[in-house]
Design a protein around this nucleic acid. Structure first.
Length: 214
DNA sequence: CTTAGTTTAACCTCGTTCTA
DNA sequence: TAGAACGAGGTTAAACTAAG
């Protein structure tokens, strides 16, 4: 089955923006818009859907930076792990960074995580509404155009995507748990080292004291 | 004042169509 | 068939506007 391709002017009409705006978004959002043999952009249905969502979010007042985060996730499905990966970079990085990370207070860490989770929850709510709407519209079009067999395929695809998403969520929480354990372990190591150093210091002091005493 | 987002303008390339 | 005209799309830079 060949996919429908739209040139930039047609895509712009469908998204209800000017062609130069699509080029601008492509650049700013780092969208992977494919090119034909002439080097001209062509847009597929999924690209149009993403751009429509970008437009909707823009209309709601979101900045391109914020939209970019969600578009990244839609494009490669990797974004949801990113905050955890950042922390992994810290934990798996050099010893200094490791210790630095371990020194972050528990309260600060909790606060940051709650705020991030809050923002993410709000964003997901909006996105799920938008995606739901797009899917409903899409399903309606599909059902009239190609009949129920395609709709069944779409439902299966959605089911697969939902399961895939759940699995990624599970993986994310598992990794988050690992990071927290790693940080706690580092804290314990630092505490143990500090304690050992203090012991050695007091031992030296004691020995020095006896030497002086002689 | 600065910044982000958008618009406009200038100029180039390439493919298609028309005409001598 | 060659070349001009035209349209579509490209890049780049500068200007404009609104909000913080």
């Amino acid at each position: 089955m060949s996919e429908t391709r739209y040139i930039i002017s047609d895509a712009a009409k469908r998204v209800a923006v000017e062609p130069h705006v699509l080029r601008y978004w492509e650049e700013e959002l780092e969208l992977k818009i494919p090119r034909n043999e002439m080097g001209h952009r062509y847009y597929r249905e999924k690209d149009i859907e993403i751009l429509k969502m970008v437009k909707t979010l823009k209309d709601k007042g979101y900045q391109l930076r914020a939209i970019k985060m969600e578009v990244d996730a839609m494009m490669d499905g990797e974004k949801k792990d990113r905050p955890v990966e950042r922390r992994f970079e810290v934990v798996e990085g050099n010893q200094e960074s490791k210790q630095e990370a371990s020194l972050v207070t528990h309260k600060e860490q909790q606060k940051t995580e709650v705020e991030a989770a809050d923002r993410m929850a709000q964003f997901r709510l909006i996105m799920s509404e938008l995606i739901g709407q797009a899917i409903r519209e899409n399903n309606q079009e599909l059902s009239t155009a190609v009949g129920s067999s395609v709709a069944e395929h779409v439902v299966k695809e959605m089911d697969y995507l939902a399961r895939d998403r759940e699995e990624r969520e599970d993986e994310r929480f598992r990794r988050l748990d690992e990071v927290i354990r790693e940080i706690q372990k580092n804290r314990q190591e630092v505490a143990a080292t500090t304690e050992a150093n203090a012991k050695v210091k007091s031992e030296k002091k004691r020995k020095g004291f006896f030497k002086k005493g002689k």
